[in-house]
Amino acid sequence: MTLRWDVTVAILAMGIVTYLCRAGGYAVLRAVRTPPLVDALLRNLPAPLFAAYVALALSRQDLAAVLASIVCALVQVRWRSFGASIMAGVAAMAALRWLGM
């Protein structure tokens, strides 16, 4: 269980920078009164962020990943369960791989 000082310093630097990203944005935007346009942009950011995530992830994978994503999405629409949806996606992927995709 070694903990080298130089590695620890590097990790702490990463941690500080990351916490500044997490908390700093909120702290600054709370202190400065934001115009309605910025408010609307922030309110509308979450879904497009995940849409971009999914698009990028699928663009680097194959057709099986796209099909498994559709299964995953349909299960979430029907049962509103994250666990069932994620497991269905992985199971679909496993089945497609087994079928040779």
Partner: peptide, 22 residues
């Protein structure tokens, strides 16, 4: 790298995206 288990990361994001649908 193409083990089905790794697809869980993408599936999680898909599932979250669907939950944000209006």
């Amino acid at each position: 790298a193409d083990h089905p288990l790794f697809f869980a990361a993408t599936a999680t994001f898909v599932s979250i995206l669907v939950a944000l649908w209006r």
